[in-house]
Computed example of a mutant assay.
Amino acid sequence: MTEARLQAFAPDGLPEISAGADLAGLVAKHTELRDGDVVAVTSKVVAKAEGRVRPGPREDAVAGETARVVARRGPVLIVRTHHGLTMAAAGIDASNVASGTVVLLPVDPDASARSLRERLRHLTGANVAVIVTDTAGRAWREGQTDMAIGAAGITPLEDFVGRVDAHGNELAVTRPAVADELAGAAELVQGKLHGRPVAVLRGRADLVLPPGEHGPGARALVRDDTSDMFGYGAREAVVRALAGQPGDRAPFGAPAAPEDLAAALVQAPGVREVVPSEDDASAHVLADTPAGVAVAAICFAFGWQVDTIDDTTAGIAVRVSPVTT
């Protein structure tokens, strides 16, 4: 009988990591690696080895690691980092580090993973994949889980699109984020309080690429702004749509189809009619005068812009068109 098996183990005994530490050397010393293993290393020890520890409170470091704020609730900030990751407090951590200091994320986690992979190959002769992991919360779900923020030697997404299941159904959108799944499995044996920042996962050698082929990295898991349906938190989306600053457009995504815009506009109080042009290059909106603010905000959120507003005896006539880059 054949069976699928995944083994995960995390060694004890790694010392406290400081700037300049030979992290790959420590991994090689405390593990027995085989071809096809996946080595998961927490971003915290990678960052410590790379000298990413800073003095001061976490709040003081967030701004420098933030590309934009996604959402806030009181002192809690969810931001998009310069890596493209959406995380609380830009992934900056004040745990398992000397009091009065914080650890930033690695500057380039994919590059860190590639360096570790190459060094482990040199030290052990084993062809392994490396993932750099970090902990994050998830929208709509309580608790946190680990995910891959850096990867080398592995394709982080399996693509099942076009394949057929056992019932003959063609798969259309199935793309397992295997690097994230492995990161979560690694965390189960690492734990948060046991001083085990490294885990080895064995049993998915089919995911490991040949030596010298590093793959696209964990960056391939980051959804870009044009396809991100949740670029802002609920409150922030309302405020930014009303403010209508050009620099806030991208997280709302690419311009929506005219019929989608029309369906949204007719829900606004005071909007009476929306007539798209035959070529979908513009639309005309007839509305009561007070509805002008709502029309502008909805258009902004849908990637359209207000071109002209004309007063009429019955209210306003607004011409809108998709934003072009």
Score class of each variant (00 low, 15 high):
Gly231Phe: 00
Gly231Asp: 02
Gly233Pro: 07
Gly233Lys: 05
Gly233Tyr: 05
Gly233Glu: 14
Ala234Val: 06
Ala234Lys: 06
Ala234Phe: 13
Arg235Thr: 06
Glu236Asp: 09
Glu236His: 03
Glu236Ser: 04
Glu236Phe: 13
Ala237Lys: 08
Val238Tyr: 15
Val239Tyr: 02
Val239Lys: 00
Val239Trp: 05
Val239Ala: 05
Arg240Ser: 01
Arg240Met: 00
Ala241Arg: 02
Leu242Val: 07
Leu242His: 07
Leu242Thr: 04
Leu242Pro: 04
Leu242Cys: 12
Ala243Lys: 12
Ala243Asn: 08
Gln245Pro: 09
Gln245Thr: 12
Gln245Asn: 13
Pro246Asn: 00
Pro246Glu: 03
Pro246Gln: 07
Gly247Ala: 04
Gly247Pro: 10
Asp248Leu: 07
Arg249Lys: 05
Arg249Gly: 08
Pro251His: 00
Pro251Trp: 04
Phe252Thr: 09
Gly253Tyr: 01
Gly253Leu: 01
Gly253Phe: 00
Pro255Glu: 00
Ala256Asn: 07
Ala256His: 15
Ala256Trp: 15
Ala257Glu: 09
Ala257Ile: 13
Ala257Gly: 04
Ala257Met: 14
Pro258Val: 10
Pro258Thr: 07
Glu259His: 09
Glu259Lys: 15
Glu259Leu: 15
Glu259Arg: 15
Glu259Thr: 14
Asp260Lys: 10
Asp260His: 09
Asp260Ser: 03
Leu261Trp: 04
Leu261Thr: 12
Leu261His: 08
Ala262Lys: 02
Ala262Leu: 14
Ala262Tyr: 11
Ala262Met: 08
Ala263Asn: 14
Ala263Tyr: 06
Ala264Trp: 12
Leu265Arg: 02
Leu265Cys: 00
Leu265Met: 02
Gln267Gly: 08
Ala268His: 06
Ala268Phe: 15
Ala268Ile: 13
Ala268Lys: 11
Ala268Gln: 14
Gly270His: 00
Gly270Ala: 12
Arg272Glu: 11
Glu273Val: 11
Val274Ser: 13
Val274Ile: 00
Val274Trp: 00
Val274Leu: 10
Val274Pro: 02
Val274Asn: 03
Val275Ala: 10
Pro276Gln: 13
Pro276Ile: 05
Ser277Met: 04
Ser277Ala: 11
Glu278Asn: 09
Glu278His: 10
Asp279Leu: 01
Asp280Lys: 15
Asp280Ala: 10
Asp280Cys: 06
Asp280Thr: 12
Ala281Phe: 14
Ser282Ile: 05
Ser282Asn: 11
Ser282Met: 11
Ala283Ser: 03
His284Thr: 06
His284Lys: 09
His284Val: 03
